[in-house]
Amino acid sequence: MKTYENISDLQPLVGEIIGTSDWLALEQERINLFADATGDHQWIHVDPVRANDGPFGVPIAHGFLTLSLLPAFSHTAFKLKNSSTGVNYGLDKVRFPAPVPVGSLVRAHFKLLSFDALENGGAQLKIEMTVERQGTGKPVCIAESIVRRFP
Rank of each mutant, 00 (worst) to 15 (best):
D92H: 11
N120Q: 14
V46R: 05
Q11I: 00
D40V: 03
N82D: 14
L33N: 09
V106K: 09
R95W: 07
T3N: 08
V46P: 10
P101A: 10
E132A: 10
L33M: 04
R149K: 12
L33P: 00
E132P: 00
P12T: 06
R149F: 14
T136L: 13
F96V: 01
H109M: 09
L105N: 14
N120I: 03
E27I: 01
L70G: 02
I31K: 05
G57I: 02
M1L: 14
I31T: 01
Q124L: 12
L67N: 08
A37N: 07
D92T: 12
K81G: 02
Y89S: 02
Q124K: 15
T130R: 01
E128W: 04
S74T: 14
D36N: 08
F73G: 06
D53G: 09
F110C: 02
V58D: 06
T76G: 11
G54V: 01
V147T: 10
K79S: 12
N32C: 08
I44H: 02
A37P: 02
Q42N: 04
A108E: 05
H62Y: 08
D116H: 05
F64T: 11
L113G: 02
Y89P: 01
D47T: 04
V147N: 15
W23I: 01
I60E: 03
T20C: 06
R30Y: 06
D92V: 12
K138N: 12
T20F: 00
L112A: 13
Y89F: 14
H109Q: 15
A61G: 13
V46S: 09
G135L: 11
A77S: 09
L118F: 01
R133K: 15
A123L: 07
A51S: 11
G121V: 11
S8I: 08
S83I: 04
Q134K: 15
L10A: 13
T85M: 15
D53H: 12
A25W: 03
L80N: 12
K81Y: 00
G19Q: 06
H75Y: 10
R148T: 03
E5A: 14
R107I: 05
N88V: 10
R148Y: 07
S145R: 02
G135K: 10
Q42A: 03
S83T: 13
E132C: 05
A98C: 11
Y4S: 09
V49D: 14
I44N: 04
R50S: 05
K93G: 07
H45V: 02
I44A: 07
F56M: 08
V140H: 10
R148V: 08
G103T: 06
